[in-house]
Amino acid sequence: MSDAVLTLEGLHKRFGALTATDDVSLTLRRGEIHALIGPNGAGKSTLIAQIAGNLRPDAGRVLLDGEEVTALSVAARARRGLGRSFQVSSLAEPLTVIRNVMIGVQAVSGHSFRFWTPVHRDRRLLEPAMAALARMGLEHRAWTPVAALSHGERRALEVACALALEPRALLLDEPMAGLGPEGSARLTELLESLKQEVPILLIEHDMQAVFRLAERLSVLVAGRVIAHGDVDTIRRDPRVRDAYLGE
């Protein structure tokens, strides 16, 4: 499949007797949002860690735009265009919003062993960072310290940080976590507007958001993908209802 941006092939990961990831394969295609859902303890975090590079799978491969990245570090995958956000916000609180975004621009616009030019006047960093903030509706907060942002703004900033990498694929780990219905709806809208630019692998608990956003879904239970398909297929699948939707 030439339009697969991110491909997982037969990933396996064991911790002692526990098989946390059991033969997981999936693809993320250009222009789509692919949602990964599953009950707590299904192994979503372990799988994300293998995609992002925090964990090495015992077997299987991870491909980004057809290029194998299975053995690469988190930073190397990020440079190759894998943008990521975290379930628990991971921002540098004392720094301003724009500083958090600029660090991502810095990595893709050359190396960080530049010692002389002050960054706060470097337009090659500032302009792309501002553009990423504008995509998430945060440009008016650029010079505010992260510590002063609301929870909703932080969630949006996480995504803006990932966008600063000019990513080929986004891996968003529960971006709606802790958002109220209003914030959740707002972020859903923003993500929908992004998917043409960059495909998103979305791990999310908010089913309303998932069903609205995702073209395709994969359901992870006990480390295995038990079903995948489009929204209607998943909604009707009896195994999914049993394992997860609990209807």
Binding site: A52, S73, V74, A75, A76, A78, R79, R84, F86, S90, L91, A92, N100, I103, G104, Q106, A107, V108, S112, C161, A162, A164, L165
Partner: peptide, 8 residues
Amino acid sequence: RLATAGIS
């Protein structure tokens, strides 16, 4: 944050 931004 630094590693996720692509810098080791």
